[in-house]
Design a protein around this nucleic acid. Structure first.
Length: 962
DNA sequence: TGGCTCACG
DNA sequence: ACGTACGTGAGCCAG
């Protein structure tokens, strides 16, 4: 009976199953978890983790999990379109549900379903009835904001931890603040007015979040608003009048019903002990080892299925997709609990579990530590057609790291580790030289994970590794461009194997962290061998997958051959004139202080100009700028971005001063101060890292420092380029730029006669566009028209919108629409191309470049208009931006090969998306200039034959070279 | 750590 | 009606 509820600190948790499941599924969508049977377990793991977390942390006394009824609910009958827009449940979720129900049952937690009602009605009703019975605390566990209408002093929302956010309890105060209302029930009125796109609740046209809040603050409810519709003005009045019925219906739909025919019987919801055997079986089937250890106690999970026989040595490479598990034994006894299992969102704390070592799986890893053994290893290496190798070093910075060891593997499960005497450079060099024949061997495929790192390390020992190469990181990048390509995760996902973590060897990050050099070779050996082994096995998984989707050529002809090119570029580095930087820093400092004083005087006080928060308060609260309409950021702060301040600058000079201050401090801290600090002491140059596996489109990115965003657009910024100089008097910088590559690609892909003709004639493309769009002869295009046309041209590549164009050139949306319409009349094939790109992407759910590189566009058919729009613009832009990336990558490979082949001293030192920079030997300039132009222009031929043009310049610094 | 702002193509 | 141009990386502030 329920009489015990009244006076004890009872704590009831009611979970909204579907809401939590959808969210969990989404959380794993970036790196899906698939077990060896091919089941996507993300939703199951996420949901179960949330459940376990709440059980362990919150210790509820009572609990229940509510599911939506399978049949139609009363809402469908009331309103035919209800949830009609919602996509069908993803297949993975449908498959996950039975498992989740089984898990809930194994926990002995009741499942609550009432025919004709949704989970929120069930939960709402139970919460109300629990409160009426004097129950202590009720938590509705859900990420769904509709529940805000139900919150009382006793009933709260519990939003579980998610994507790094801590769990959060929402009480009455939170709700009132968030919706700016007086009573929680008014949440329904807000939702009734503004609607809810995901549930297809229409609301009233023209009313969004802000208007809804304002109107409810004034009128209190939808009904009262309608009653006083006469007070409203213009279009708004019309809308409220015409859609009054729809508003009331929307309110009704948003209302959670509290009269579901279900009793609240506290004793049926008392938290019971789980059925451990059932849970163990389920976790075992699902391969949730970490979770099993956490819920059922350490070690127990690993012991369950240890009877599985190790895979015999002869049985190589069972296919993962067939659910066989990996070479390292059946997946259930090989992969033991490890910190990595729970994914990398960080939201699921992973306490240290029992960890088996490699000793528990079949492998033969050998330490090769004598001249005789090395000789013998080399002989074997030279007989192989493909070998994976890995370097162990003292750190991640290629400039300072020393080699500690080399590992090699050519048969799965069998690897060799060669320690390198890292404290004696001559001895290390001698040992590496022993293996030179292998690195020089042109017939041997060298396989590595992020092999650029290994190449650069070896380059410091004068070893230039000969291709062909195969990088598993890049292989995965082509397969799944928007995921991470960390080897441990790849091993988990594709081999169902958990590699030894590096932390277990060198300790956690901190000042006591060891390096590989601090450990005896015997301890490093297994780790190093395992890396080479896993890499080899990943290659064998990825290669057929790539072949299947037609990406193997792109990998073998572009990405892999680019690796040594980038390694060489990074190794060379760029010389920085630190003295010039120092002088410029002082000069900037002078300007900054001057402006600072002016700002303080204008503000009447000193404050931190760099703090958007303080700045906003000064500008808007103290000085009262902005005249009424003040933009805020989504976190509720005043927006103080460039856009806002440049508008304000018309009213008050302070805004302009702040913009100038921003610009100067940015230049100082990001470039002038930071760059000299990154100059390598050994050679006086900065060595950036080019990341080949981060962008969604196929471009490179540059970090540490980022040399792809060195200022050029403003005069004071441009100065910085003067400090990028050639290595010595005998060199100059040579910069080669593609002119308008992306527009040329679009002209070619669309086959637009007008635009192609303009490029063929060598016209200035923006002037030519202006002439067409504004209907004036070429000669009469003025600067303003050209500027606008240029913005339009860029806009086209990005998937133009009238709003965006209007914003950027400061015209009305109507004018922007007219310009775009005219543009599409004049360049009708371009319009056709954009439509085709979207339609093709709708069908395939990805877009491709000229070389077949893919960008997945899984939201292209989303019902969410904003998301869909964003994805549609990607469908237009990705092939263009990505093809430009394909082209310059090809050019880099060809130029690098040519420079080597001709034994020239000129070095490629930078790539900036459409530009290559060289440290050029003076005497070579005449010879190389036309060749570089030619190699860039012909790296790839566009299908319709639109020519690519390249501009080359030279100078004593990067600025002059342009 | 995430949000904001701003540097580049 | 909705919200609004594509792709990056870094420094600073605030919690």
């Amino acid at each position: 009976m329920t009489d015990t509820a009244a006076n004890q600190p009872h704590k009831l948790f009611l979970l909204d199953a579907f809401a939590l499941i959808y969210r969990a599924h989404f959380a794993f969508s970036k790196n899906p978890r698939v077990n060896s049977k091919g089941l996507n377990t993300g939703a199951i793991l996420g949901f179960t983790n949330t459940l376990v977390e709440v059980l362990q942390k919150e210790k509820p006394t009572h609990i229940g999990v509510a599911f939506d009824a399978q049949k139609k609910t009363f809402r469908h009958e009331q309103f035919a379109d209800y949830k009609a827009q919602r996509q069908a449940m993803p297949e993975d979720i449908g498959l996950a549900i039975p498992y989740i129900k089984k898990i809930i049952k194994a926990f002995n937690i009741p499942i609550l379903v009432v025919d004709g009602f949704e989970a929120d009605d069930v939960i709402g009703t139970l919460a109300r009835r629990a409160e009426a019975q004097g129950f202590g605390e009720v938590f509705m566990m859900t990420p769904d904001k509709d529940y805000c209408q139900l919150v009382t002093d006793c009933v709260k929302i519990y939003r579980p931890a998610f994507m790094g956010n801590a769990a959060e309890v929402l009480d009455v105060a939170h709700v009132l603040q968030r919706f700016e209302i007086e009573r929680p029930e008014q949440v329904i009125d807000i939702l009734g007015l503004q609607g809810d796109a995901s549930d297809n609740i229409p609301g009233i046209p023209g009313i969004g979040e802000k208007t809804a809040k304002t109107l409810i603050q004034k009128y209190g409810s939808v009904e009262n608003l309608i009653a006083n519709v006469d007070e409203l003005k213009g279009k708004q009045q019309e809308n409220v009048r015409n859609f009054a019925e729809q508003g009331l219906m929307s309110k009704e739909l948003a209302t959670i019903h509290l009269d579901v025919p279900i009793e609240f019987e506290a004793d049926k919801l008392v938290l019971d002990k789980p059925n451990e055997d059932e849970l163990r079986q389920l976790f075992d089937d699902l391969e949730f080892r970490q979770l099993a250890a956490r819920v059922l106690g350490g070690g127990s999970a690993a012991g369950v299925s240890s009877t599985a026989a190790p895979t015999p040595r002869g049985a190589r490479r069972p296919k993962v997709t067939e659910g066989q598990g990996s070479l390292f034994g059946s997946s259930s006894d090989a992969a033991v609990a490890s910190g990595a299992e729970e994914g990398e969102t960080g939201s699921f704390g992973a306490p240290a579990g029992p960890r088996l070592t490699l000793a528990d799986v079949p492998h033969q890893y050998h330490l090769i530590d004598s001249p005789e053994l090395r000789k013998s290893l080399l002989e074997f290496l030279l007989q192989q057609t493909e070998v994976s190798f890995d370097t162990e070093t003292t750190g991640l910075d290629t400039m300072t790291a020393r080699l500690v060891g080399l590992s090699f593997c050519w048969l799965p499960g069998e690897a060799y580790y060669v320690p390198v005497p890292h404290d004696d450079h001559a001895a290390a060099q001698a040992l590496i030289d022993e293996f030179r024949p292998f690195f020089d061997a042109k017939g041997t495929l060298k396989i590595g994970q992020n092999i650029k790192y290994d190449l650069t390390i070896l380059r410091h020992y004068q070893v230039e590794v000969e291709g062909p190469l195969f990088d598993t990181m890049l292989a995965h990048y082509l397969l799944e461009p928007d995921m991470r390509h960390n080897m441990d995760v790849l091993a988990e996902t594709y081999l169902h194997y958990t590699p030894v973590s590096i932390i277990s060897l060198i300790g956690p990050k901190g000042k006591n962290q060891k390096t590989m050099a601090d450990l005896p070779p015997a301890e490093v050996s297994d780790y190093a061998c395992e890396d080479a082994d896993v890499t080899l096995q990943l290659k064998h998984v990825f290669e057929p997958l790539l072949k299947e989707v037609g990406l193997l050529d792109l990998l073998n002809e572009v990405e892999n051959p680019l690796v040594p090119v980038l390694s060489a570029i990074e190794y060379e580095g760029v010389k920085i004139d630190s003295g010039a930087m120092g002088e410029y820093s002082a000069e900037l400092q002078g300007y900054i202080q001057e402006i600072e004083q002016q700002i303080f005087t204008a503000a009447g006080q000193e404050f931190n100009i760099g703090s958007p928060k303080q700045l906003g308060e000064i500008l808007f609260d103290k000085l009262g700028l902005g005249g009424g309409k003040i933009k805020k950021t989504k976190t509720g702060q005043y927006a103080t971005g460039e856009e806002v301040l440049s508008v304000l600058a018309a009213d008050n000079p302070v805004a302009g001063l702040i913009l100038e201050h921003r610009q100067l401090t940015k230049l100082r801290s990001t470039y002038v101060e930071a760059l000299p600090q990154l100059v390598c002491e050994l050679d006086g140059r900065v060595h950036t890292s080019f990341n080949q596996a981060v962008t969604a489109t196929g471009r490179l990115s540059s970090t540490n420092p980022n040399l792809q965003n060195i200022p050029i657009r403003t005069e004071k910024g441009r100065e910085i380029r003067k400090a990028f100089v050639p290595r010595d008097e005998n060199h100059v910088l040579l910069a080669a730029d593609y002119s308008q590559v992306e527009l040329r690609i679009m002209a070619d892909f669309s086959g637009d006669k007008t635009m192609i003709e303009a490029f063929r004639q060598g016209l200035d493309i923006h002037t030519s566009t202006a002439s067409k769009v504004f209907h004036v002869p070429l000669a009469e295009v003025d600067g303003e028209m050209r500027r606008k046309a240029k913005t339009v041209n860029f806009g086209i590549i990005y998937g133009i919108s009238a709003f965006g164009l209007a914003q950027r050139i400061g015209i009305s949306r109507k004018e922007a629409t007219e310009i775009i319409d005219t543009y599409f009349q004049e360049f009708s094939s371009v319009k056709q191309f954009m439509d085709d790109s979207i339609n093709k992407a709708r069908e395939l759910e990805y877009a491709t470049t000229l070389l077949g590189r893919r960008r997945y566009l899984r939201d292209i058919n989303s019902r969410n208009a904003t998301l869909r729009g964003y994805t549609e613009r990607n469908a237009i832009n990705a092939p263009i931006q990505g093809t430009a990336a394909d082209i310059i990558k090809k050019a880099m490979i060809n130029i690098h090969d040519w420079l080597l082949q001709e034994k020239l001293g000129t070095k490629m030192i930078l790539q900036v998306h459409d530009e290559l920079v060289f440290d050029a030997v003076r005497e070579e300039i005449e010879y190389i200039t036309p060749k570089i132009k030619e190699l860039m222009a012909t790296a790839l031929l566009l299908p319709h034959g639109v020519p690519l043009e390249v501009e080359v310049g030279t100078g004593r610094n990067w600025l002059q070279a342009h």
